[in-house]
Amino acid sequence: MGLEEKVPEGILTTSLDSVINWGRANSTWPLLFGLACCAMEMIATGTARHDIARYGSELFRASPRQADLMIVSGRVSNKMAPVIKRIYDQMLAPKWVIAMGICASAGGPFNNYAIIQGVDKIIPVDVYVPGCPPRPESLLYAMDLLRAKQRSESVGEWRKVEEPLAVDEIMPLGA
């Protein structure tokens, strides 16, 4: 039917969306970025027993430019919030966020002056993981959910999100 009849044997056809999403979902590189207790479980997820490499996510990148996924692993203080926002902005699209643990999701036990009640107040979150801290298995399940989301996305959508800046926005005249 259609194109497949015309091409020689051994060639498969697919949609651009599914092949790109297949790549994205199977090599989502997280940002090497820990905040608090949950970061310890994030590291545990990365080590031998839980082995996040099965998901193609073992490469924790320290530079936000090389990372696809930000795992907000811990409580976000008022002093840290601008930093997190800036790191998120520095990540290149497509990018995703997992709010790991109840503190990153909703403030958790720290309902006080110092802590922002949920990181979704400063950056958009794709998957929330409950737990204090969530076990490595929970984080792996969150990665599963994220992969399902990644697979259902359309490549074109991400292109719409980031509109290129005009030249004078990047380098103002007279600067």
């Binding site: 905040l35 409580r75 840290m80 720290f110």
Partner: peptide, 11 residues
């Protein structure tokens, strides 16, 4: 310091 200040004492 203080990027992880969580107000433990006040809490």
């Amino acid at each position: 310091l203080g990027f992880l200040h969580s107000g433990f004492e006040k809490t």
